[in-house]
């Protein structure tokens, strides 16, 4: 299925995430990933959204977002001109006979061991959504205890910023 990613600058106010997600629910947008973070400015937060759909869904989502007074500016994130990253934490059962296999898989994907006990290993991986999906798939051969991932965040390559882009638009 087609999907697209948007970076949305919003006013950093109480309940702002609720306003944005309430609109998604009401208009039945299928959001596959969402992350919220602080920005370079105290008065703004940045929401990165990945949603299913093509051009029409994207236009509609952008137009509906712009109708929310809390939204400051929106930019589409295109994989070719952006740095995209997502963080994964994965806890897997530790057994003496599987230790080396888990190690090897982690190494292949560039995942780091961030916690280690006799019974469990917590792996941390930073990457794009597809690599993280693939790593999780591989780890299904072991006993995965817990998974937590952040959703995509991204910045455009070069000096361009989302606010500058909005001015041009």
């Amino acid at each position: 299925m087609n999907s697209f990613t948007l970076a949305v600058l919003v006013r950093n106010q109480f309940g702002v995430l609720n306003r944005v997600t309430s609109m998604f629910r009401r208009r039945r947008f299928n959001i596959t990933s969402l992350s919220v973070s602080v920005t370079e400015s105290d008065v703004k937060s940045r929401i990165t959204i990945t949603a299913d759909g093509g051009g029409r869904e994207k236009d509609q989502l952008i137009d509906q977002l712009y109708k929310l007074p809390v939204v400051v500016s929106i930019a589409e994130i295109k994989a070719e001109d952006c740095v995209l990253a997502e963080l994964l934490l994965l806890k897997v059962q530790n057994k003496p006979e599987l230790r080396s296999d888990i190690h090897a898989a982690a190494e292949a994907f560039g995942a780091k061991i961030v916690d280690y006990t006799r019974d469990s290993v917590v792996l941390q991986m930073v990457g794009n959504a597809r690599n993280i999906d693939a790593f999780i798939e591989v780890m299904q051969d072991y006993t995965v205890l817990e998974i937590c991932r952040t959703g995509v965040i991204s910045l455009e390559r070069g000096a361009m910023t989302i606010e500058k882009k909005a001015e041009i638009y």
Partner: peptide, 11 residues
């Protein structure tokens, strides 16, 4: 005046 109406129901 509402851009969101332009792609909502008909193309």
């Amino acid at each position: 005046i509402d851009g969101a109406e332009l792609s909502k129901n008909v193309s």
